[in-house]
C-alpha cells in the first residue's frame, strides 16, 4: 500500500512534472544525430577531396561536382527519372481499378481483399526480386511460354534490361499505391457517379471528372510513395537491370563500395536529394490545397508501412 502510493506520486510527477522538451528529447536528438546531420553532411562532403585509401581527405575541391555533371552521369540521371515516372504511371493505372474494385465490395470482406494485395510485402524485399529472376529466367517457363504463344520473338530476353527493372519496381511498389487509393476510394460517395450518369455524362466522363478528383488525395499520396522510392532504387536495377539498367542509386552504391570514392558518392547522393525534393514540394503544395491537414495522407502512408 505504502509503496504503491510512492509509485503513484512518481507517476503523477511524470504527468505534471516532466516538461515537453524532456519527452521530446530522445527522438529529436536521435534524429538530429543520425538523420538530419548526416543528410546535410552529404552536401559538404561532395566538396571534399578523396583520399587514396577510400576515405575522405581534408582538402576542398570543385572537381567532384564537375565530374558528376559529365554526360555519363546525366544520362543515368535521365534514365532514373523516366523509369521512375513510368513505374508511377503503371502503378496508378493498375491500382486505381483495384482500389475501386475493393471499395465496391461488401464492407465485411474488404479488409481480406486488401490483405491479398498486401501479403506479398511480407516476403523479404530481396527475395521478391529473386523470385522475379527465377520467373524471367531465360530457361524459365514464362519466356518459353511467351515464345511458344508467339507473343515475343525467340531472341528476346526478359531479364537484364530496363523492362525488367520497370516490371519489378512496379511489383514492389504496387501495394503502397493500392493502399492510399483504396483508402480514398472507400470514402468516395458512389451515388455521385450514378447521378452524373443520370444527368447524361458518359461512363468515362463520370469516372474522369467525378471519381478521379474525388480520390485525388489518395492519388497524390500514391504518387509520393511510388515515385520517390523508385528514384532511389538500387537493389532492383542492380539485380535485374544488367548494364543498361543502371540507375543513380547504383552509381552511388558503386562509388561507396567497389570503386570507392566517397566524395563522388556524396555528390551523386546530393544530386539525388535535390531531384527528389522537386516532386515532394510540388505534391506537398497540392496536398495542402486539397486538404488542410496532411493527417490522412500521412495515415495511409504509415498504414502502407504498417503492413509491410
Amino acid at each position: 500500500m505504502d509503496s504503491r502510493s510512492v509509485i503513484g506520486r512518481f507517476f503523477s510527477k511524470i504527468k505534471h512534472g516532466v516538461p515537453e522538451w524532456a519527452l521530446s528529447a530522445p527522438s529529436v536528438v536521435w534524429l538530429l544525430l543520425f538523420f538530419l546531420i548526416p543528410s546535410l553532411l552529404v552536401f559538404a562532403i561532395a566538396f571534399r577531396t578523396a583520399d587514396p585509401s577510400g576515405g575522405i581527405d581534408d582538402g576542398w575541391t570543385l572537381e567532384t561536382i564537375k565530374n558528376v555533371l559529365r554526360p555519363e552521369y546525366v544520362w543515368v540521371l535521365w534514365r532514373t527519372v523516366w523509369v521512375s515516372v513510368a513505374v508511377t504511371v503503371i502503378c496508378l493505372l493498375l491500382s486505381i481499378p483495384v482500389g475501386y474494385w475493393i471499395s465496391r465490395q461488401n464492407p465485411k470482406y474488404r479488409y481480406w481483399y486488401l490483405l491479398i494485395f498486401i501479403m506479398p510485402l511480407w516476403t523479404n524485399f530481396l527475395i521478391r526480386i529473386f523470385a522475379w529472376r527465377i520467373l524471367l529466367n531465360p530457361e524459365g517457363f514464362l519466356r518459353r511460354a511467351l515464345i511458344a504463344m508467339g507473343i515475343i520473338p525467340s531472341d528476346v530476353f526478359l531479364l537484364n534490361n530496363i523492362g525488367a527493372v520497370i516490371i519489378v519496381t512496379v511489383y514492389t511498389c504496387l501495394p503502397f499505391a493500392i493502399l492510399p487509393i483504396y483508402a480514398a476510394a472507400e470514402k468516395f460517395n458512389y451515388s455521385l457517379l450514378e447521378a452524373a450518369q443520370d444527368l447524361g455524362a458518359s461512363r468515362f466522363k463520370a469516372f474522369y471528372s467525378i471519381f478521379l478528383p474525388g480520390i485525388r488525395r489518395g492519388i497524390i499520396t500514391a504518387i509520393l510513395v511510388v515515385l520517390i522510392p523508385s528514384m532511389g532504387s538500387y537493389a532492383i536495377p542492380d539485380l535485374v537491370g544488367g548494364v543498361n539498367g543502371e540507375m543513380l542509386g547504383n552509381k552511388i552504391a558503386i562509388r561507396a563500395s567497389a570503386y570507392r570514392n566517397l566524395p563522388e558518392a556524396a555528390a551523386l547522393a546530393a544530386m539525388l536529394s535535390i531531384i527528389i525534393t522537386i516532386p515532394i514540394i510540388v505534391l506537398w503544395l497540392r496536398q495542402r490545397r486539397v486538404a488542410k491537414t496532411t493527417g490522412s495522407a500521412l495515415k495511409s502512408h504509415v498504414e502502407g508501412g504498417l503492413v509491410k
Binding site: V28, L31, A269, S273
Partner: peptide, 19 residues
C-alpha cells in the same frame, strides 16, 4: 523530423550514415 525519414529513399539514408 519524424516524417522525413519515411520519405527519404533508403539509398540516401544509407550513404549519408556511411559518410
Amino acid at each position: 523530423l519524424i516524417y522525413a525519414p519515411l520519405v527519404v529513399p533508403d539509398v540516401l539514408m544509407g550513404i549519408s550514415l556511411l559518410l
